Amino acid sequence: MPAEETCEAPLRRQPTQRRSARRVEKMLDACAELLDEIGYEALSTTRIAERAGVAIGSIYQFFPDKRAITQAVTRRHVERFVSRVGRRFLSEDYGGWWDAVDAIIDEYVDMHRTVPGFGVLHFGDVVGLNLLDGVSDSNTVIAGRLRGLLLQEYGLTDSEELDLAILVAVEAADAVLKLAFRRDSEGDPQIVAEAKRLIRGYLNRQFAGASA
């Protein structure tokens, strides 16, 4: 394995000053843009530094390699995704969890269309599954966060069965949405609609009757 892909830790150290935090954000922005433009294989810390307008030493001050930067971008994407879903839950009224599932898929599709690097990292499997931590794959981490939102908002019964159902739903949605974006760079609307129908039908069989 190349030297640039040996480390699991996303950050050598956390930025403690606002100036340093802004510099790290510029690095992450540059990494995300380059992933869309040239892909992971052609990505390098040198190119990230050049795009971000920082010295290469600044990169290594915070990140050991390109994989760690990509990992940090993925973490940021997940945080933004969950935050967007949470804000939507607060601002919109749903008839029940089934409408919330549609909203979750809508946010996922919108981020793929509008957020640099999101589609590459969440649909391209460019680095491997364990982008968010060294134990769980990315979809497992995302499922856990969405599980927490659904439990909080809809009072579903916490159980191992619910954990498994949400994980399977996330995996299934991910697979079908990959197809949607292979068919159409903006996401084939018919396949996106089928993804919603598939997930709603599956979850309805798992916990029918649960509602707000």
Rank of each mutant, 00 (worst) to 15 (best):
Q190T: 10
A169E: 01
F123K: 11
S44Y: 02
E50W: 07
G155P: 04
Q61V: 04
A42L: 15
S58F: 00
Y94R: 08
R23S: 15
A165D: 01
K178D: 10
G134M: 00
G201M: 08
R200T: 01
P64M: 14
G187R: 06
G155Q: 01
I56A: 12
R84P: 03
T74L: 11
R183M: 13
L156I: 14
Q152H: 09
I69G: 05
L150K: 07
D99G: 10
G148P: 00
A195R: 04
L35Q: 09
L131Q: 12
G148S: 15
G119R: 15
A52W: 00
F89W: 10
R88C: 05
T114L: 04
R183H: 09
G53W: 01
E5Q: 03
N130K: 15
M111H: 01
I166Q: 01
V54D: 11
I48G: 11
L131V: 14
R197M: 10
Q17N: 04
N130F: 14
R80I: 05
D137V: 00
Q17T: 14
E25V: 05
I59R: 03
E186A: 12
G209L: 09
S20I: 06
L132K: 09
T157C: 01
L132A: 04
L164Q: 04
H112L: 13
L28N: 06
R200K: 13
R13F: 10
S138F: 06
V141S: 01
A72Q: 15
R87P: 00
C31A: 15
